[in-house]
Simulated scan of single mutants.
Amino acid sequence: MVLKDETAIVGVGSTPYYKRGMSLPQTKIELACKAILAACEDAGLSIKDVDGFAYYSGGFDTALIAQSLGIPEVKFTATLTGGGGGAAGSIGLAAAAITSGHANVVVSLMTLQQVPTARFGAAFATKGTGGYSRPVNPETDFVAPSGLFAPGQMFSLLAQRHMHLYGTRREAFGEIAISQRENAANRPTARFRDRITMDDYLSARMISDPLCLFDYTQENDGAVATITTSAERATNLRQPPVYLVSAANGSAGRWGQSITWMGMPDEYFASSGHRTVAKDVYERAGVTAADIDVALLYDHFTPMVLMQVEDYGFCEIGEGGPFVESGAIRWKTGSIPVNTHGGNLSEAYIIGMTHVKEAVEQLRGQAVNQVEGAELALVTGGPAPTPTSAIILRK
C-alpha cells in the first residue's frame, strides 16, 4: 500500500522530442541517461543518490543504465506489467519501494526510439512498409480475420460503440484534438504547434472509422524521467515537493485483454477500462472528481480521453460527448482542464510520461499553460491491456 503523502516527486527531466527515427545516432540508453541526468539536476541530487528504478513497458536494462551513469548500488528494480497503461502506475511502484524501505531515490523512466519503418512489429517490416502490431496467437486469430491488427483499429470499435449507445458525435473527438493542439501552440517543446479547426478535423484523412488522422497519437522519439523520494528528504531539495496522494493500477477482470479481442461485457465495452481504478484512486486519496484541478489523461486516441472523462466522474457515463463539446476540458475556460501540455496528440508521445512531467510542473506553478490555483492533479495511464493506472498528486 502506498501511504498518503509519504513520498514526493522531486525531479523531472527530458530530452528533446524528435520526429520518429530522428534521434539517431543516439541510442535508446543514451536518451534514457540524458533524461535521468536532467531529472537529477532538476532535483538537486547526484546520480550517485539514485538507488532504485520503477519502470513500465519498455524493457529497460537496469544494469546497463547503472554502469553507464556510474550508480554505485541498485537496491530496487521492477517493472509494472503491461504497456502504456502503467505510465502513472510506475510512480506508485516507486513510492511502494520507498515506503517499504527497499530504496531511497527511485527513477521512473520512458524512452521511445522508433526506426523509420514501423513501431509495431518492426522485425517483420521491410523498408517503407508497416508491420503487424503483434504475432499471431490463438486469441488474435479471432479478430485478425476482421482486420484488427493495430491499436487504432481496435479502439475505433469502442468509439463506434459509444457513438451507437449514446449518440456521441465525431465533433466531440474533434474538440479534444483541437483543444490539445491549442494547448501545444505556445509550448516550445511541442512537436505539433499549428492550430487546427473543426473543418480541418472533419476533412482529415480517415484511418479507421471513426478515427481520422487527428484522432491518432503522433509517432516520435525521446525520453522522460522522474525522481521520487521520501517526503522527509523532499523538503530539503531544490524544487518544491509534489506529493503522491494515492496510486492505483489494474482493471476490471474481464477488461484485461479487451482491446485485443473484444471480450469485455457490454456494461463497460464503450469505456476506457478505468472505472475500477478510478474508484480506488479516489477512495485512497479521500477526494472526488470535483476536487481535481487539472487532469492529465492518457491520449493515444481522442475517444479514450472522452471515455476517461466519464470513467473518472467528470460527467455521467454516456454524457462525455456533450460535456466535451461544451468546452469543459479547455485550459482557461473549462471546468476541468485536460492535457494542458498538448498530450500525446500534440506535444510528444513518450507513452504517457510527459503527462506526469506536466502534472509536476502544474503543481509547482511552473507550467507553460498554468492552471490558476492548481493543488490536485490526476494523471492516468492507458486505456491499455491490464494494467491501466492512475495517481493523484498534490502541491
Rank of each mutant, 00 (worst) to 15 (best):
S100K: 12
S133F: 11
E139T: 12
V105P: 00
F124D: 03
G121H: 05
G131Y: 00
E139C: 02
K127F: 11
A97M: 04
T129R: 07
G130S: 03
G121F: 08
K127S: 13
G128R: 00
G121P: 06
A123C: 11
S100D: 11
V105I: 08
A122W: 13
S133M: 12
T126E: 10
R119V: 15
M110S: 13
A125I: 06
S133D: 06
D141N: 10
P138Q: 04
P116T: 13
T126D: 12
F120V: 15
F120M: 13
A118G: 07
I98S: 03
G130T: 01
F124W: 14
V105F: 04
A123S: 15
A97Q: 06
T129M: 07
T99D: 12
A103P: 01
H102V: 06
G121Y: 08
N137A: 05
V107T: 09
V115F: 04
T111K: 09
F120S: 10
S100Y: 08
Q114T: 15
V115S: 13
P135N: 08
R134V: 12
S133N: 03
T129A: 07
G101A: 06
E139R: 11
V107G: 00
N137G: 15
Q113E: 15
Q113A: 14
A122N: 15
A97Y: 00
H102E: 02
V105C: 05
Q114G: 12
I98E: 04
G121R: 08
I98H: 09
V106F: 01
F120Y: 12
E139F: 04
V136P: 00
S100H: 09
L109Q: 03
T111F: 02
